[in-house]
């Protein structure tokens, strides 16, 4: 058999797709550093090194060539998505455990690139939040609110040696996320207004600092769509799912359920909408299916945030929708040219 097409356009490769994803994450990363300090940079580099190491090991064990698969960029994308989903000062071993499950289990045990039914980064996240719930709530405080802003070396030793800077206690560095604050407050029978009044973590729409990160993810996400790497259906449906579900609950009981704009302004919502739910491998491939996938994931995110046992629901909602993909795809096959119109 001859090769089907003899000519190819320049710059079409999996590496290009993955590099563009990383490039479009950059605005979010930069704002993250600006608002929360150096921790995230260390975590991103550490996660990337782990991802490449585990990927190389898995490829070696499976007898695959290293070069084409290590340079495809997919492992680094997984690493960044996981690193951006966990607290930026998370200890080194947590990232290690997360990456082993993301790359080793969710990706390679399922057959490697293109074969995984679950988003690898979200599997890593799920393992971590189930196994180490306390560490997973210790997020960096926004620099504007922190009692102490750890510099690069202090962040490094905190992550790798678990040593705090002299004379600084942990509470000066970390804080609960806005969602976590809401959750804890509600469990103590406070109303949303009371919770908002009692904490400085809340910003204009979402959280101090984090709402800017969310905005930067949105900018990067729109760029990703403009580069035609992600389809519009998934992020739009995902955010619509959050907005509609949260809007209904908020309308139902304003004192108990967080406002839709607040929910959308969480960085996890924007990261999920544009960078995680849009993972082509584990997502739906039909236009209608993507709308269903996004809406379902958005709906479940809010349901888990409001009624579940975890402060955030993006990871679990996307994993649950990953499960439904074969069914969604089979049900939403688009019309083929020359067949009867619906």
């Amino acid at each position: 058999m001859t090769a089907s097409t003899h000519t190819l356009p320049p710059n079409t490769s999996v590496t290009r797709v993955m590099t563009l994803v990383l490039a479009c994450l950059m605005p979010g990363v930069l704002v993250y550093v600006w608002q929360f300090g150096w921790g995230i940079v260390i975590n991103l580099v550490w996660a990337s090194l782990l991802a490449l190491g585990i990927e190389a090991l898995a490829l070696r064990l499976r007898g695959y060539p290293l070069k084409p698969f290590l340079t495809d960029g997919s492992a680094v994308v997984t690493a960044w998505l996981l690193a951006l989903s966990i607290p930026p000062l998370a200890p080194w071993w947590m990232t290690l455990v997360g990456m082993i499950f993301a790359i080793g289990v969710a990706k390679h045990l399922y057959g490697g690139l293109g074969q995984n039914i679950f988003n690898p980064a979200m599997i890593g996240f799920a393992v971590l939040i189930i196994s180490f719930p306390v560490q997973m709530t210790q997020w960096s405080a926004p620099l504007s609110l922190a009692g102490h802003a750890p510099n690069f070396t202090e962040s490094l030793s905190l992550i790798f040696a678990d040593t705090l800077p002299d004379g600084v206690n942990l509470d000066a560095i970390i804080s609960a996320t806005p969602l976590d604050t809401v959750r804890t407050g509600l469990m103590q029978q406070h109303t949303l207004d009371e919770i908002h009044g009692a904490s400085r973590i809340f910003g204009q729409i979402g959280g101090v600092g984090s709402e800017w990160v969310a905005a930067a993810y949105l900018v990067g996400g729109i760029a990703l769509w403009a580069f035609r790497i992600v389809p519009w259906q998934v992020p739009v449906a995902f955010l619509a799912g959050i907005w509609l579900t949260a809007g209904f609950l908020h309308w139902f009981d304003t004192g108990r359920y967080a406002a839709p704009w607040f929910q959308i302004a969480m960085p996890s919502s924007m990261l999920g909408a544009f960078f995680i739910a849009t993972d082509p491998v584990s997502g739906s491939t039909t236009p209608k299916g993507r709308l269903i996938f996004g809406l379902g994931a958005g709906f479940l995110t809010v349901i888990i945030r409001a009624f579940g046992g975890y402060p955030d629901g993006v990871a679990f909602s996307i994993l649950l929708m990953n499960l439904c993909v074969p069914l969604i795809d089979a049900w939403t096959q688009p019309r083929v040219f020359g067949t009867a119109k619906d």
């Binding site: 797709v17 698969f69 495809d72 690139l113 293109g114 035609r228 389809p231 491998v281 997502g283 491939t285």
Partner: peptide, 13 residues
């Protein structure tokens, strides 16, 4: 010559 064939990532291009 064509670059190496990689697995499908379901990008739907």
């Amino acid at each position: 010559p064509k670059p190496r064939e990689l697995p499908c990532i379901r990008c739907t291009e």
